[in-house]
Design a protein around this nucleic acid. Structure first.
Length: 496
DNA sequence: CGTGCCGGGCT
DNA sequence: AGCCCGGCACG
């Protein structure tokens, strides 16, 4: 677990400057693509890191850590490409100018030696495991700044464990938001070369997040008591993805309590959380549902994006075209076997009106059988969505349109705001044109007024129209009703 | 009038 | 909190 984390927060992707091959002493910018340790001093057992640096000209060169230095300024402040969406400040070593301009943030003043810098712990470990290298330190510090200036991290707090979890959580949010695989693995594709293609750094975030509205109040701080919407569970972060790669360890970590948070809604839910995660293609008129992220990515890549290369040359664009949905296998089963299966609604067009379900974006292994789940359940994507809906009873979800331009490159210079409270995820600027991809998106307005759509006190909730337990099971089978129905409360099972 | 479910009472 | 039910409102 730890080893994984280390890898996750590694220096990979860092911008550095390294002496040119020409040997003229000039320092050329590059991005760390890989790090390996070499045991080149047998006597002392000293190990040194060797960084494989992707140079601006596209060449890959290995340098020892003494040879490279942190690149003082980003080579590019523009054209962050897709990375603009990637709020992964953790991995984000690319930082917007503003952040670097020594704005004194809380952490900057922290002693560098302190390995417990809230957000850089891992980074530091990964970077500088066992030596005291000033350059490394400076690199470190830079990173620290990056991170801390992007995210407001409380300085002193809780136990280390908690801190850890928080970080994990935060990372989760970021990762899921980023919906980018680039974050996970060092890009192999380098062609764009010198300019603006250092997507790996991927975290030019803060400049965009300015308009962003990050409700960090996540699980612990549900500051909006009147919000009926499900709280931000650790799970909810994952949905978007984190299929393969570094995310794994953390996913595992969060799993246990994530599920409990998952349905933390006013309604009691007795049923076990037997969820199945599926990935649905959001491409217009497609709606293909696959059981693995890899599968759906591949599908999108090949079918919609017309790329034939494998995941390695993916630039992550696929991520914007699919969403994760959660199937409550319980309900499904029940529906299928029960007396009167809850017929899926007419399914208004592609209505991923809900943020992709929340379930550990657990790496679903490789490309599994793509049809395996295209069975009863998945075949009807609508029903899947339906189920997703039912889990958020009171969260009147209003399908919305997002202001989107025609650009196909999803997140270029996009700014967005996200509120975990209720669905609103709003985009400004160009977004993926094929349908809304980020789950629920609403017009900015509603995002700002984060108060969820709720029936106000006096207004009685208009009665549901769908079948309810009573109708479905009849009075004689009262024991089959959902508890709410039994108690004459709003039915939970067949939510409209 | 049947039904969904709010509000509130009881345990 | 879990359970139950009177009674209102909606269709």
């Amino acid at each position: 677990m730890h080893s994984r984390r280390l890898a996750k927060r590694s220096i990979l992707g860092s911008r550095v400057c390294a002496p040119s091959v020409a040997g003229d002493g000039a320092l050329l910018p590059g991005v760390v693509q890989a790090v390996k340790q070499e045991n080149n001093d047998a006597s002392t057992g000293l190990r040194r890191n060797v960084y494989t640096v992707l140079m601006q000209d596209g060449s890959l060169i290995e340098y020892s850590e003494d040879e490279i230095v942190v690149c003082p300024t980003p080579m590019t402040t523009k054209g962050p490409l897709k990375s603009s969406l990637k709020q992964t400040s953790c991995n984000g070593l690319t930082l917007p100018m503003e952040t670097q301009k020594g704005e004194t943030n809380t952490l900057a003043s922290e002693p560098v030696e302190d390995p417990r810098g809230p957000d850089c712990k891992r980074t530091s470990r990964a970077l500088d495991p066992e030596k005291d290298n000033t350059r490394s330190v400076s690199l470190l510090e830079q990173k620290r700044k990056v991170v801390s200036s992007s995210i407001d991290v409380p300085q002193a707090r809780k136990s280390e464990e908690e801190v850890d979890m928080d970080k994990v959580t935060a990372a989760m949010v970021l990762t899921s938001l980023s919906t980018s695989p680039l974050v996970r693995s060092p890009p192999v594709k380098v062609s764009e070369g010198s300019n603006g293609s250092w997507k790996d750094g991927g975290c030019t975030s803060s400049s965009h997040s300015s308009s962003g509205y990050w409700s960090w109040s996540a699980p612990s701080d549900q500051s909006n008591p009147s919000t009926p919407s499900p709280p931000l569970s650790a799970d909810s972060f994952k949905p978007f993805r984190a299929p393969n790669g570094p995310g794994q360890a953390d996913d595992v970590i969060d799993e246990p309590d994530g599920s409990s948070l998952l349905f933390d809604e006013p309604i009691p839910r007795k049923r076990k959380n037997s969820m199945k995660v599926m990935f649905k293609c959001l491409w217009k008129n497609c709606g293909k549902v696959l059981s693995s992220a890899a599968g759906i990515q591949k599908h999108i890549r090949t079918v919609h994006l017309g790329r034939n290369c494998d995941s390695e040359c993916s630039d992550g664009e696929e991520d914007f075209y699919y969403t994760e949905i959660k199937l409550n296998t319980d309900s499904v089963a029940e529906g299928l076997n029960g007396p009167t299966p809850p017929a899926p609604p007419p399914a208004p067009a592609p209505a991923p009106s809900h943020p992709p379900a929340s379930e550990p974006g657990r790496p679903n292994g490789g490309v599994k059988s793509e049809n395996k789940l295209t069975t009863p359940l998945s075949r009807s994507a609508p029903s899947a969505l339906y189920l997703v809906h039912t889990d958020h009873a009171y969260q009147a979800t209003v399908p919305v349109t997002i202001p989107s331009s025609t650009s196909f490159t999803p997140s270029r210079s996009a700014s967005f705001s996200v509120s975990w409270q209720s669905p609103p995820v709003t985009f400004t600027g160009s977004t993926a044109s094929p349908i809304r991809s980020f789950g629920e998106q609403r017009p900015p307005v509603s995002a700002v007024l984060s108060s969820p759509p709720r029936v106000t006190g006096s207004l009685r909730k208009s009665r549901g129209e769908g079948k309810k337990c009573r109708k479905v099971y009849g009075m004689e089978n009262r024991d089959m009703w959902c508890t709410a129905c039994r108690w004459k409360k709003a039915c939970q099972r067949f939510v409209d």
